[in-house]
Computed example of a mutant assay.
Amino acid sequence: MTDVARSPRPRPQRSDGEQTRERLMHAALRLFAQHGFEKTSTREIAEAAGTNLAAIKYYFGDKAGLYRTVFFEMQGKPEDEIERYADPSLSLAEALLGFYTGFVEPLREGDVAQQCIKLHAREILEPTGLWQQEISEGIQPMHEALLAVLARHLGVATPDDELRRLAMCLAGLGVHLHICTDVIDVVAPALKQGAQAWDRWLDRLVMYGLAMVEAERQRRATPEPSGETPR
């Protein structure tokens, strides 16, 4: 297990140090995303944030504690994301709106979202142990919550492989939007321009998501020919 995975949670910040803590987190996010955990020094982070090494120790304990905080705190908490779409009283369209809002809202913030994406990509390629924690404590609970939404609206008692495949495809729309924003900048820059660009993306994601769910509903309603493998 790496130092990052073993690192204790940082102590709560003092209210009068919020700006210093925020500067450290943003500086660390940029540098960790560019160079990775191992090749980024605390001195570089402190200098970029306009503070000193003691501030890193006070707020985060050490470099590993700062990395953990940046990795998990610079994005939404899983429980907050799930709350957007898991309420049984929501219609399917409302649930998908809440689900995709979790993908679109960070993109409105511009560079921060891009740096978080790069940081996660680096963590996958240069693992410290946090990506597996992200999967088990973040991605998996959100996946299970989405499965419950789909099962409820499709009348499925127990989620099966086809429902899990549908959930993966629905999430893929949002994930692709995140990891391919630089591609969009090149091949279709107009899709990110204008005050309403992200509102339009959110609307379309919900529309496409509803179409995917409806396609699965129709597939389930169509009897499989005798002796054939289910589609």
Rank of each mutant, 00 (worst) to 15 (best):
residue 177 L to D: 02
residue 194 G to I: 09
residue 102 G to A: 05
residue 169 C to S: 04
residue 188 A to G: 01
residue 94 E to W: 01
residue 13 Q to I: 05
residue 162 E to R: 14
residue 154 L to S: 02
residue 1 M to A: 15
residue 227 G to K: 10
residue 126 E to W: 06
residue 171 A to G: 03
residue 194 G to M: 09
residue 120 H to D: 07
residue 95 A to Q: 04
residue 152 R to N: 11
residue 58 Y to T: 12
residue 115 Q to G: 11
residue 89 S to L: 01
residue 111 D to H: 09
residue 34 Q to C: 03
residue 151 A to P: 03
residue 25 M to H: 07
residue 191 L to M: 12
residue 138 G to Q: 09
residue 167 A to H: 08
residue 160 D to L: 10
residue 117 I to C: 14
residue 228 E to G: 02
residue 71 F to G: 04
residue 58 Y to W: 09
residue 119 L to S: 13
residue 178 H to E: 02
residue 136 S to C: 07
residue 6 R to K: 15
residue 149 V to E: 00
residue 171 A to F: 00
residue 72 F to A: 10
residue 213 V to Y: 01
residue 8 P to R: 06
residue 120 H to F: 15
residue 175 V to G: 08
residue 223 P to D: 08
residue 36 G to R: 06
residue 16 D to L: 08
residue 26 H to N: 12
residue 226 S to H: 13
residue 206 V to L: 02
residue 186 V to N: 02
residue 219 R to Y: 03
residue 222 T to Y: 09
residue 185 D to H: 10
residue 94 E to V: 01
residue 69 T to F: 13
residue 156 V to D: 09
residue 230 P to A: 05
residue 147 L to N: 14
residue 112 V to T: 14
residue 123 E to K: 06
residue 199 D to R: 05
residue 201 W to H: 15
residue 128 T to S: 11
residue 136 S to Y: 00
residue 47 E to G: 00
residue 225 P to W: 03
residue 104 V to D: 06
residue 43 R to Y: 10
residue 56 I to L: 12
residue 91 S to Q: 04
residue 128 T to D: 05
residue 161 D to S: 13
residue 67 Y to T: 07
residue 173 L to M: 02
residue 43 R to V: 14
residue 49 A to C: 08
residue 70 V to Q: 12
residue 93 A to Q: 05
residue 109 E to T: 12
residue 10 P to M: 05
residue 31 L to Q: 12
residue 187 V to D: 04
residue 14 R to P: 00
residue 133 Q to Y: 01
residue 43 R to L: 09
residue 189 P to E: 10
residue 62 D to L: 10
residue 183 V to N: 04
residue 231 R to S: 08
residue 156 V to P: 01
residue 107 L to F: 01
residue 101 T to D: 10
residue 41 S to H: 07
residue 64 A to W: 00
residue 38 E to K: 06
residue 51 T to S: 14
residue 165 R to T: 13
residue 205 L to V: 05
residue 141 P to F: 15
residue 164 R to W: 10
residue 117 I to R: 01
residue 49 A to L: 08
residue 96 L to I: 05
residue 19 Q to W: 11
residue 12 P to M: 05
residue 144 E to K: 12
residue 155 G to M: 09
residue 117 I to D: 05
residue 158 T to H: 12
residue 161 D to L: 14
residue 77 K to G: 04
residue 2 T to Q: 02
residue 130 L to D: 13
residue 95 A to H: 03
residue 35 H to K: 12
residue 162 E to I: 01
residue 214 E to G: 04
residue 21 R to F: 01
residue 53 L to P: 11
residue 195 A to D: 02
residue 198 W to L: 14
residue 103 F to P: 02
residue 80 D to F: 03
residue 67 Y to F: 15
residue 38 E to P: 00
